[in-house]
C-alpha cells in the first residue's frame, strides 16, 4: 500500500465527496501534521492504531558490522512505533491469519 492507495480510500470511503485532488491534499495534510509534531519533539498517540514515541539515546561505542572497527555512535533522538493492542489483535484474527503457522518464519 502506498500513499496513492490511502488517497483512494479517502476518495471512496471518507464520505465527504472529496475530489481526487482534495483527497490527496487531506492525506498529505495528515502526514505533514504528524511530521511537524514529531519534529517539535512531540509524541503521537493514535488510539486503535499505535503510538509514535521519541527516545533520546546516549552516545555509545559501537562497531562497523562490516569491518569490526570500533566507532562512536553519537547521542541522538530516534522515533519508534508501538502498535496498539487493537492493531496487534487485528493482525491475528483467524479470519486473516492461519494460526497453524504455515506461513511463519522464525524471528
Amino acid at each position: 500500500m502506498t500513499k496513492a492507495d490511502i488517497v483512494n480510500a479517502v476518495y471512496a470511503d471518507a464520505g465527504g465527496g472529496y475530489s481526487k485532488k482534495e483527497s490527496a491534499d487531506l492525506v498529505d495534510d495528515i502526514f505533514e501534521t504528524m511530521k511537524e509534531a514529531l519534529a517539535r519533539g512531540e509524541k503521537i498517540k493514535i488510539s486503535g492504531f499505535g503510538n509514535f514515541v521519541l527516545r533520546d539515546k546516549r552516545e555509545r561505542q559501537g562497531r562497523n558490522p562490516q569491518t569490526g572497527a570500533p566507532i562512536v555512535i553519537h547521542q541522538r533522538r530516534v522515533l519508534s512505533f508501538k502498535a496498539s493492542q487493537i492493531l496487534k489483535q487485528a493482525l491475528n484474527e483467524e479470519l486473516y491469519f492461519d494460526l497453524s503457522g504455515e506461513e511463519g518464519t522464525p524471528a
Binding site: M1, D5, I6, A9, V10, D13, A14, G16, Y18, L26, V27, I30, I46, G48, F49, L87, A90
Partner: peptide
C-alpha cells in the same frame, strides 16, 4: 477523514 486513513492502513 483521519479515521478513514488509519482504518485503511490497519
Amino acid at each position: 477523514v483521519v479515521n478513514c486513513v488509519f482504518d485503511a492502513m490497519l
